[in-house]
Amino acid sequence: MSSSETKHSPLEQFEIIPLIDIKSGNLDLSVTNSSISMIITVVIITLFITFSVNTRAIVPSRLQLLSELSYDFIAQLLKDTVGNEGRKYFPFVFTIFMFVLIGNMVGMIPYSFTFTSHIIVTFALAAVVFIGVTILGFIKHGFHYFSLFIIPGLPWYMLPLLIPIEVISYLSRPISLSVRLFANMLAGHTLLKVFAGFVVSLGFAGFLPLAFIVALTGLEILIAFLQAYVFAILTCLYINDALHLH
């Protein structure tokens, strides 16, 4: 895409702009707007989670309550889906949830960059979950982990049909997990940009799409939370599958 084409494209916001060039051999490790966005996300989470509980007050302040609520939210989620053995994986699930949630929220700030709208990032996250859960399953059950593909109580002659289906559905987990988040973010931000274009092009009547953008921003914030939640709950469910099979 040439620069004149992308100037007013709704996809322009997803363009990656290198800010500081860093090269390590053949690898391009440049600091880009995407990495800046990730760093901002991590800084926000660490500062918030760390300093809100700094006083360790028994009667919490509002900020402390907020981080305790997010802690309780994920802890409860993990307990409901996995049970008490899930406590070990709490930091991981919590990190995934907060990273995706705050990443989405940072992306909602105008002129900022949404790193969760890049398939490579969401796929990498999903791959970490997928590979981690698979390794966990094999450590826990050995080769017995393959029985995950056999649905209990099914007649044996159905197995040749269903085992491939189960295997395919298992292997497509990282794809569905990553594409869901990526597509939601992409669609939402593109839609916002398209309507923002209408505001300019419609002139006086532009207040109509503007009102729509306001409403849509609310919806996008909801989706930002919802997708983080879905990502976390699916991670929990996969961990549960790996720990308990069926």
Binding site: P18, L29, S34, I120
Partner: peptide, 8 residues
């Protein structure tokens, strides 16, 4: 920028 994004 895949490598850069993955790295960061």
């Amino acid at each position: 920028f895949f490598v850069s994004q993955l790295f960061w």
